[in-house]
Design a protein around this nucleic acid. Sequence first.
DNA 1: CACTACATGTAACTAGTTACATGATTCG
DNA 2: CGAATCATGTAACTAGTTACATGTAGTG
Lengths: 191, 191
Amino acid sequence: MSLQHALLGVLEARPMSGYDLVQFFDSSAGWIWAAPQSQIYPTLRRMERAGLISGDDERRGPKLTRTVYSVTEQGLEELNRWLSAPHAPTPARDPFLVQALNFDMIEADQAHAVLEQFIGEQEKAAAEAEAHRDRLLAKDTMLLKERLTRRDPADHDRVARIKAHVFAGIAAVARTRVEWAREGQRLLTGD
Amino acid sequence: MSLQHALLGVLEARPMSGYDLVQFFDSSAGWIWAAPQSQIYPTLRRMERAGLISGDDERRGPKLTRTVYSVTEQGLEELNRWLSAPHAPTPARDPFLVQALNFDMIEADQAHAVLEQFIGEQEKAAAEAEAHRDRLLAKDTMLLKERLTRRDPADHDRVARIKAHVFAGIAAVARTRVEWAREGQRLLTGD
DNA sequence: CACTACATGTAACTAGTTACATGATTCG
DNA sequence: CGAATCATGTAACTAGTTACATGTAGTG
């Protein structure tokens, strides 16, 4: 149930509506944890029932309201507990590895083309992760700014560097995969 | 539905029973695609109904039988089709990244300990992937040997190198993650 | 007034998890 | 004859996917 913990982590920065969270999980948070709208709304209601967050109805015009959720004391405790303990590694389940493992069964040029597309995706992912890392280091994202308003100014650099480091890691893994895929292309074309 | 393609890829090497596949997905294949017994048996039956594999009942004593599945012509075609086309990247969903992203919310020594455990896991994963890579290069695994009996001897080295390369990649990513986690530990302890 | 953004839902489905359940055969 | 291994299943559940559905408010 990491979606719940991901939501708690975001809402800790600032209270948000389901709509806000949907946007957020479609953009930057999507690099860490992807979640569709149809999963976010029900999860928020379940979390409210569980007492982890509480929803506050705000008027947005005469007929439209939005529910802004904030993390409760209990939610903060749960997040803290979950963050502090090591968890079992997630089982491997990467369709691309299944594909690459069987590249010996198809034509070399087709496998080469599949790798080419993979390289493009990974390079794009690396570039985007690096850009986000830089924005975080510059404290130049909306969410980080709001998060820091509730933190001791002496900690601001530290918080920014910790967040940025995660995106640096995502980029590093993507770069490693690019190198690996290029090596694979050389292997396919016969050294 | 990559479990189906993973199963096709394994059964292409040699026909196997559900039991054999369960063992296999608990060991080496588990690094690529994890699947529990309760998922494998029903999936095999669905694949047989779909005509991708066909089951052959073998007697194993007076009362016990086992069903040995082999890939059909149609299954091979499906596998080939799936292997030859690029697929959309899988949505990110890594609980550990959610955890690391929020390391600024907990005590540095607790975050350090969580990273320490992560490093241990990744180093173990890297070592095991490298060991398996070496076994594949030496054509020293049961499944590869059986797979190669149906291949042109001129292709044996190529097939072994392609399979091995996937495990080299898994190891490389794990090593990258280890370096990243160590950097994270330095970050937490204040450079 | 049309278009975009805001805002929230539901239904039907596939995939994956956890736990339980049952019996046969082989080997020491 | 007891333990490990062989062999196959089911039930109840949680998570995630795809597609549909509905209406409001702000902007040009």
